[in-house]
Amino acid sequence: MATTKAKLASALTLVSIVLGFMVAVQYKESQSHSQLTQTYSLTDAKLKQLDDRLKTLQSVGQNEQKELAQARAQLSAYEKQAAGSDASLQMLQAQVTEDRILAGTTEVKGPGISITVTDGTPPAGASAQTIDEYVTHDWYMRDLINELFAAGAEAVDINNVRIVATSGIFCGGPVLWVNNNRIAAPFTVRAIGDAKYLKSALLMPGGEVERLRTLDNLTVSPIETEQSITMAAYTGTTTTSPAGSGS
């Protein structure tokens, strides 16, 4: 009996020690977790306030886009008016339009092609390094766009973000940054130009599409010929001329 009691007592003591240890560890962990989240102690009200602010900013942004489009359309109308029926002024006005198309600061429309590139499918159980070989990196997009301009594209956009001279394309983790816009895969690149020529330039043996598919392991859609592509104007900062100041 005494042995049984002693055994029971020892067992209970051991269990209590282990339990006590586990309680202490658990409590300490929950304390450090609440310290970590302390800085971001959030209420629904704060989140809602920020959400409202975002919606307001988005609404303001949409109105500003409309205002800018209206102002540009007015400018185009004034230019045509200024040109009137004078041949030399009409030629000047046409040059201004071409300059704006080159700068990317005007909405444009025309025939062309579109192509969509997205990450490839790595083999099951692939290592992180192998998975990286199937990801759409920024340099693939730069190479593709370079090839399109070499083939005579007059305007290019990627996920509706217009490419201009100063456009940088960078990896930002799982997304790409283009002109300070975040875009995510799949990446649809559209180009306005001679569709037949653009398509054959991309599809030539050893060309860009073959390289993206076979060497870069990406998933590339068939190239679509488009009768009419409309591209939004670039709305970032541009260089202005002191000679062109309005006042």
């Binding site: 040059q95 704006r100 001279a165």
Partner: peptide, 15 residues
């Protein structure tokens, strides 16, 4: 007026 407009457009375009 058109020349002033053109100056800005050329600056933005890189011309």
């Amino acid at each position: 007026a058109l020349l002033k407009d053109q100056a800005n457009a050329e600056a933005a375009a890189g011309i």
